[in-house]
Amino acid sequence: MSVIEEIKGGVRLHLFIQPKSSKNQIVGPHNGMLKIKIAAPPVDGEANSELIEYLSKFFKVPKRNIALVKGDTGRQKTVDIEGITLNDAHKLVTAAF
């Protein structure tokens, strides 16, 4: 399993989320996943909402193009993003850390 894999119309990210951070940021690879720090606490879906908002801005796609596929209540999440190529996603992520 790759951190970022190509799916029809976009990419799938395998993420490890660290909530209650000082700021939202991509940290880098972590146990075969991409670690992302999110400022929101893991309460009532706040961290998930903030994660989707952050990914929307980071990859420059509308929030409606981002779907939380797996990991609604855990730190390990799978997210699908439509409208971005594998190559572009790799470039953006690699430049972030």
Rank of each mutant, 00 (worst) to 15 (best):
K60F: 08
L55V: 11
L15A: 05
E5H: 03
T78E: 13
F97Y: 10
I36A: 01
D44R: 05
V27T: 13
S22Y: 11
I52P: 01
N87H: 12
K77G: 09
I36S: 04
V11D: 05
T85Y: 01
S2V: 01
G74F: 09
Q18T: 15
M33V: 05
S49F: 08
F59N: 07
T85C: 00
K23F: 09
V27S: 05
V43W: 03
D72I: 14
I36D: 06
A89D: 10
P41L: 04
K37V: 09
F58S: 02
T94A: 08
G83A: 01
K57P: 10
G71L: 02
V3W: 03
G10N: 07
K35C: 04
L86S: 08
G71T: 13
K8W: 03
E82F: 10
N48K: 06
D72C: 01
I84R: 04
A89P: 14
G32V: 13
K37A: 12
V79R: 00
V93M: 01
V3F: 07
V79N: 00
L34N: 01
S49T: 11
G28L: 02
T78R: 04
K70H: 10
P62V: 13
P62I: 04
L15C: 05
G9S: 14
Q76K: 13
G9E: 15
F97D: 05
L86F: 15
F58L: 08
K70Y: 12
T94C: 02
R75H: 12
K77V: 15
N87S: 14
Q25I: 15
D44V: 11
A89I: 00
I17W: 04
D88W: 02
V43D: 08
M1A: 07
D88H: 08
